[in-house]
Design a protein around this nucleic acid. Structure first.
Lengths: 208, 208
DNA sequence: GCCGAAGCTGAGCGCCCGCTTAGGGCGCCC
DNA sequence: GGGCGCCCTAAGCGGGCGCTCAGCTTCGGC
């Protein structure tokens, strides 16, 4: 852990599961390029150039440009789901768990903004099969948050009429952080996480 | 007013300011294509085809493909700002005005989802000058919402510590509706508008 | 009935895209 | 130390992109 980026969300070193080294460098380069310009505006020559390789090198490790996006999206969604599952399983009241889920989820979207941006906003560039796989992960993400809210309502901690709609709004709020968060802006990921946890507890009517 | 789409947000017929007729048809076709596939994945041949014209016809009415996006973005932001200004100027408490601002803003993002999607998510495809012009409009959008919240805090109606951060979150919540709203889904724009107005009033700590 | 302007099309230019192929360098194993 | 397999590059293919241009049709004014 040597840089601010690496400690974001207190997570393990990202992309370490991607081997060999050249494949990981290409993938990291693709994340940066996709986040900056969008998938369709990014060329394979740009990705290879950022990784210090020739355009042809990309095709040794990945069949197509779309496979790169698929791998990024898959790993990113796995990580997002892992964050929410960890929060949902911690001990404490529904209020505690919802606050932890929102703050850690938001910290990830802010601290790992480039990854989150690709993961959350380039889904439409995937083909039907890959998109279906990712959408299944998204339903699990939705389920984790909805579960906490349902428990809070059942236990009398929360006051929510439309659980599905509120779940959608909470996730939407967190995800959109990847769109507007600015690394050079006035807020740290931790600060946004704390603010958003407070706002979400208000949304579900949790007692102070 | 003959279709559900046209009555969304109770607004006037959109794009009527775009003349001549062929230019408007091209612009409407571009909105649909950009919303479906994104700006970079849309070809000028696709836009012209949707408008029932040859590819060359596009360049009689617009200098470049980017000018089309610029015009769409400009008109859309003007409309969004108009909606918020109207809500901010209505009579009533800050609570009433914030509820009206959020519900009408959300109704527009849901009911005019294709337009809103292009307006809110394709900003990065514009060149520096056009982007700067649009960002100025966004600051005005932000100012309208922040103004209502500040008045609510000053008048004791709201309980908000971080006004800027809360304003950002409220706008983020509304804007992201354009990403997830599904016309074939279970909720109408009116229903989402009402739900979101309630959630936002909770976020600012407005009394019931 | 003629003319110019406006609107549009068919053809296509030059460019850059995603991706392929042939072959070279280098380390590892016997 | 010779052969093999893994990575990688230089070069380039086929195609689709944004955009252009010469010329055709249509129509209002006189």
């Amino acid at each position: 852990m040597s840089t601010a980026e690496e400690t974001a969300g207190g997570e393990t070193e990202p992309w370490e599961e991607v081997t060999p080294d050249a494949a990981r460098r290409l993938l990291v380069a693709a994340v940066e390029a996709f986040a900056e310009r969008g998938y369709h505006a990014t060329t394979t020559r740009d990705i290879a150039g950022r990784a210090g390789m020739s355009p042809a090198a990309l095709y040794i490790h990945y069949k197509t440009k779309e496979e790169l996006l698929h791998r990024i999206s898959r790993i990113g969604h796995d990580r997002a789901l892992d964050i929410l599952r960890t929060a949902a399983r911690t001990e404490g009241s529904a209020t505690d768990r919802l606050a932890e889920a929102v703050s850690s989820f938001v910290r990830w979207h802010a601290g790992r903004r480039t990854t989150a941006r690709v993961v959350q906003y380039e889904l439409d560039a995937l083909g039907p099969d890959a998109r279906a796989e990712i959408l299944a992960l998204r339903r699990q993400v939705d389920g984790e948050v909805r579960g906490i809210i349902e428990e809070g309502v059942a236990g009398g901690e929360f006051d929510v009429i439309d659980v599905h709609g509120t779940t959608l709004a909470v996730l939407s709020l967190c995800i959109d952080v990847a769109r507007w968060f600015n690394v050079d802006g006035p807020r740290t990921p931790d600060e946004v996480g704390a603010l958003y946890a407070d706002l979400v507890l208000r949304m579900v009517g949790a007692a102070k």
